[in-house]
Amino acid sequence: MQTDSSVALLNANYNPTPTSVDNTEQNDALLKEQTDKFEAFFLKQILDIALSSDEEGGLYEKDAGDKIYKSMYNDTMSNALSGNLGLSEMLFSYLKEER
């Protein structure tokens, strides 16, 4: 018995192309997400430098995991602040014009 798989192959390669409006909106959303992530990375670098004090009575006491706690705190703060500083919006506008 022979099985006809031509219809299955056609359906496997079926990829409906979205309209250009949907594609543009999706690209803008992805670009905005990436610029927000870049801003979060930039803010984390700033926070790492600003909060890297070796003085007594800092935010975290000296123990085995103090570097981990500082890094986790800086990650959370940078993600919370990203998108609100203006760097992300400026970069998004510049990259959108270049397309």
Rank of each mutant, 00 (worst) to 15 (best):
residue 1 M to N: 11
residue 2 Q to I: 15
residue 4 D to M: 03
residue 5 S to E: 08
residue 6 S to Y: 03
residue 6 S to R: 11
residue 6 S to N: 03
residue 8 A to M: 08
residue 8 A to G: 07
residue 8 A to F: 05
residue 8 A to L: 13
residue 9 L to V: 15
residue 9 L to T: 15
residue 9 L to W: 11
residue 9 L to G: 14
residue 10 L to H: 03
residue 10 L to K: 07
residue 11 N to T: 13
residue 13 N to R: 01
residue 13 N to P: 00
residue 13 N to L: 13
residue 14 Y to R: 11
residue 15 N to M: 08
residue 17 T to W: 03
residue 19 T to V: 05
residue 19 T to P: 09
residue 20 S to L: 08
residue 20 S to C: 02
residue 20 S to Y: 04
residue 22 D to E: 13
residue 23 N to K: 15
residue 23 N to E: 15
residue 23 N to G: 11
residue 24 T to N: 03
residue 24 T to G: 01
residue 25 E to M: 10
residue 25 E to N: 14
residue 26 Q to L: 14
residue 28 D to R: 12
residue 28 D to F: 05
residue 30 L to E: 07
residue 30 L to T: 07
residue 30 L to Y: 09
residue 30 L to C: 02
residue 33 E to H: 12
residue 33 E to R: 13
residue 34 Q to R: 13
residue 34 Q to S: 12
residue 35 T to W: 01
residue 35 T to A: 01
residue 35 T to M: 08
residue 39 E to Q: 03
residue 39 E to C: 08
residue 40 A to G: 05
residue 40 A to D: 01
residue 40 A to T: 08
residue 41 F to H: 06
residue 42 F to M: 11
residue 42 F to S: 08
residue 42 F to L: 08
residue 44 K to M: 04
residue 44 K to I: 03
residue 44 K to L: 05
residue 46 I to V: 14
residue 46 I to L: 09
residue 47 L to W: 01
residue 49 I to C: 05
residue 49 I to H: 00
residue 49 I to V: 13
residue 49 I to R: 07
residue 50 A to K: 08
residue 50 A to G: 04
residue 50 A to W: 00
residue 51 L to H: 06
residue 52 S to H: 12
residue 53 S to W: 04
residue 55 E to G: 07
residue 55 E to H: 04
residue 56 E to D: 11
residue 57 G to F: 05
residue 57 G to Y: 09
residue 58 G to L: 02
residue 59 L to M: 10
residue 59 L to K: 02
residue 59 L to N: 00
residue 60 Y to N: 09
residue 60 Y to M: 11
residue 60 Y to L: 15
residue 62 K to T: 12
residue 63 D to Y: 09
residue 63 D to A: 14
residue 63 D to V: 14
residue 63 D to P: 06
residue 64 A to V: 11
residue 65 G to I: 15
residue 65 G to Y: 11
residue 67 K to S: 12
residue 67 K to L: 14
residue 68 I to S: 07
residue 70 K to P: 02
residue 70 K to A: 14
residue 71 S to Q: 07
residue 71 S to F: 07
residue 72 M to E: 06
residue 73 Y to C: 10
residue 73 Y to H: 15
residue 77 M to C: 12
residue 78 S to F: 06
residue 78 S to I: 09
residue 79 N to L: 10
residue 79 N to E: 13
residue 79 N to W: 01
residue 79 N to H: 05
residue 79 N to F: 08
residue 79 N to I: 14
residue 81 L to P: 00
residue 82 S to W: 09
residue 83 G to A: 06
residue 83 G to K: 08
residue 84 N to S: 10
residue 84 N to D: 05
residue 84 N to L: 09
residue 85 L to N: 13
residue 85 L to C: 04
residue 86 G to W: 07
residue 86 G to F: 10
residue 89 E to C: 01
residue 89 E to F: 03
residue 91 L to V: 12
residue 91 L to E: 05
residue 91 L to P: 03
residue 91 L to A: 11
residue 91 L to R: 05
residue 92 F to R: 02
residue 93 S to V: 07
residue 93 S to T: 14
residue 94 Y to D: 11
residue 95 L to N: 00
residue 95 L to E: 01
residue 97 E to G: 00
residue 98 E to H: 05
residue 98 E to W: 06
residue 99 R to H: 02
residue 99 R to F: 10
residue 99 R to W: 10
